[in-house]
Design a protein around this nucleic acid. Structure first.
Lengths: 334, 334
DNA sequence: TTGTAAGCGTTATCAT
DNA sequence: ATGATAACGCTTACAA
């Protein structure tokens, strides 16, 4: 791989001049057109590619943006990741992906590696589990990194002191529940979550508040996952229970898709027999015309990158309610 | 951030010794226990993190593995990516994600950046579109990289000379079609694809071969995408047509999910009125009990990493037919 | 068993 | 407008 020195020799100039022509930052340094052309040509014919390693070493920082996601397979995080990747690429950065399974120890080890690579910023996608072992160590590591000038962003509520760009989970769930109540649903169950998972618990809180508000009894089921399969299992259990709910609010679109699968296989009609709503607003939800709280996932990713690149403090965007065909006004049977 | 020199000073040894203790490669160099302990402690207290940039510069290679995916949001590629990420992390590598939208120019620019970072290997997830502009330039870039010792792996059929770890698309589709015919389906349509997309066209070929084999007329529809939404749209059109097929084979699980959505919303029964099958074997398909060709996606990712790390030439794993509840034996109406 | 020193490719400082 | 040179933090022959 051709180096700057080789290009310089080929163009008959010093490495300094070659660097000035080929560099992003020093582009405006006065260089004669002839020299500039010579260097450009030389770089072209030599097949020159600058060394990111050398630049990173020299600058003390790389143009890497780390993403630590709870689950890369979950479209919720995948859409965030994609938003980050696209924005990062546009800004000349590169996205490093790390999967952490909501385990603070894994998060920390991935975080450390990202730090070793001199990442310009590190973005957490996914909230933490209250009291999970390793949380304190992770927090310390994050603090060190931030002292070193690494931007740490979180796109979900976290216990450590990162810059948070977070949607109001409680309020969004409250709004969604209230909407379903206003449609005439009486027995609304909430499905999905993970014990201690902060974002999920905030959604449950919002649901509870809305239910109590209209004197209805909350019913939470299936606190055993955020995936399609756990949503399906929980819904199957609900359908088999003595009193079937007339609506289910799911902790995210994934569990909602699982709920749809369960209901269809049980031969029930949606929304006549049972209404379904999710939280997330992912593409898959859209295909099934799922009523959902639409969160600007890709936009959150874009904002995180903006925050890292320009050191700004962005305002989190709003969510909105998307009305699909999995809910409809219900005539209360007197 | 503490450097090796600082650690060495703190431990009262030379940088060489410090390096030897903290290094992966030179771990077995003879160092006295006392010295070793001193260095370890010093590194600990100084909060030492080695610089990946310096190592990469010195070694001429980084421990980065690049992934160029057609669409990170498609679970098909997301599962591959996750397989790569997990295997890479286990081997002490880090995964760089790049989204390329099946555009050779984007693929090339991402590839170049990956090369600038001295990636140990670059993995392509997704096949190419026959004759797409930019293909030749990409191929040249790939050749350069391979000459430089960068491992280039492709997990889908591609026009350039990378190491391919690819499932037999034609055969898998042939097998699936034959299975549906054997179940008694007569009018089997094929849905999904993109004009020129090699992997998709191979699947269509397999379908055609199986159909002709049993004297049935092939019917291909919806060559306008590989996504859920395009699968839904194509299926809606099929349902509205004069002769409704009794089974649909989809180019991938995503379009199959879209087909399910369309059929459910049309109020038809699956598999009684119409049977559905996909190709891919992703998690979402599993939730819907979709009959599908199960491809070892994560395993392909793992193999790619193995190939890069150990320079082996792995054997591509086999696919298998997964029987779900979206197909069933059909009693031919005489 | 430990240390010295060169050099990886780039950029920044300071001349010219 | 251009160039010489010294770092950046690490690895590794080569010495001791």
């Amino acid at each position: 791989m051709a180096t700057l020195r080789e290009v310089a020799r080929l163009a008959g100039v010093s490495v300094t001049t070659a660097s000035r022509v080929l560099n992003d930052t020093d582009r405006d340094h006065p260089v004669s057109d002839a020299t500039r052309a010579a260097v450009t040509t030389a770089a072209e014919t030599a097949g020159y590619r600058r060394s990111a390693a050398a630049r990173a070493l020299k600058n003390g920082r790389s143009r890497l943006i780390g993403v630590i996601a709870s689950d890369v397979l979950d479209p919720y995080f995948a859409e965030m990741t994609r938003g980050i990747e696209v924005a990062a690429a546009a800004a000349g950065y590169v996205t490093v992906l790390a999967n952490a399974n909501r385990d603070p120890y894994q998060e920390r080890s991935r975080f450390q590696v990202l730090r070793e690579h001199g990442a310009a910023g590190i973005v957490f996608c996914g909230s933490d589990i209250d009291g999970a072992p390793g949380t304190a160590e992770l927090a310390r590591e994050v603090n060190h990194a931030m002292r070193d000038g690494t931007d740490v962003i979180s796109l979900a509520p976290r216990g450590f002191a990162a810059t948070e760009i977070v949607i109001d989970n409680e309020a969004s769930s409250y709004d969604l529940t209230t909407h379903l109540l206003d449609l005439g649903n009486r027995q609304i169950a909430f499905v999905g979550g993970l014990p201690g998972l902060v974002a999920a618990e905030m959604r449950i809180s919002g649901y509870r508040r809305a239910m109590y508000n209209q004197d209805r009894l909350p019913r939470v089921a299936g606190l055993d996952g955020m995936s399609q399969i756990s949503g399906r299992a929980a819904t199957e259990r609900l359908l088999a229970s003595a009193t079937r709910p007339d609506a289910i609010i799911c902790t995210n679109d994934e569990t909602a898709i699982g709920a749809l699968a369960a209901i269809w296989q049980a031969g029930l009609r949606i929304p006549e027999d049972i209404a379904i709503a999710g939280i997330g607003g992912t593409d898959t939800g859209r295909v099934f015309d799922l009523t959902s709280i639409e969160l600007p996932l890709a936009e959150l990713g874009r904002l995180a990158v903006e925050c890292i690149v320009t050191h700004s403090t962005p305002v989190p965007p709003e969510y909105r309610l998307r009305l699909g065909r999995t809910t409809a006004p219900r005539n209360p049977i007197a």
